[in-house]
Amino acid sequence: MTELSIHGGANTASARLGRLAIYGALAIFAAFYLMPLAVMVMTSLKDLDDIRTNSLLALPERLTTFAWSHAWNEACIGTECTGLAPYFVNSLVMAIPAVAISTFLGALNGYALTKWRFRGANLIFGLLLFGSFIPFQVVILPMAQTLGFMGLSSSVAGLVLVHTAYGINFTTLFFRNYYVSLPDDLVRAATIDGAGFFTVFWRIVLPLSPSIIVVTVIWQFTQIWNDFLFGASFTSGGSQPVTVALNNLVNTTTGVKMYNVDMAAALIAAAPTLLVYVVAGRYFIRGLTAGAVKG
């Protein structure tokens, strides 16, 4: 990044004051946005006495990881007191294959739609685009019937199928727009060299796609991991994803409300998406702007 000086560079008192105002405002906004996260983290590290007696914004008197371990493997969700752990595993078992399959199919679709333009390709792309504007709620009932028909009701495999099907629209859109900017001559040259549809895909197109793969994976993982509606609609009991389990944990606790456990559980449920952003975030920005500049 290069720094551009838009103002003339006159280092006057008013200019400095302006800077101060800008940074002051930014600091206030940052603090405002970080506050809920800070409160969550602090509350999750307090014990219940601390929470009852002290202010919401006060720092913990004694640090304790009780709430974290309790949320992970002791808290009661419904009638089962297993903590979030098994549901967290459910979410992983759901999200990883769904992300992988939908990303792969999106890449294949995008490649076929841009580099092997067949009759009706634009129509198919239009329909796919249309699919990404269909709200979740509309498909719940037919999807439930389909899953029942396929014998996948109330299973993680069913959720994988639903998320894959629902994700293909988006992944295809991403890959298609990326591959439009790949020169067609590459495919033509490879065709003359003797490579077929899949060889070109594996050997030439896919190796040129890391940035768009990262973008798609982040997008899909966030969508699928955070999904609540499909999880709540199509699963029950032991096959629920972590988002649904979190809801049940928070809503069905009897007796004393354990705010610290709720907070820890929420943080646990949110951790994987945060992790994905941190690890792949810089590719995300790069990928979103890829193709905007030639080269």
């Binding site: 001559d185 590459l186 040259a189």
Partner: peptide, 19 residues
């Protein structure tokens, strides 16, 4: 098929495989 025509082509854009 192009690959069986016993031809080779040099493209204006070179079309070298970047990877």
């Amino acid at each position: 098929h192009p690959k069986d025509r016993d031809i080779a082509m040099v493209f204006q854009s070179y079309a070298l495989y970047p990877n």
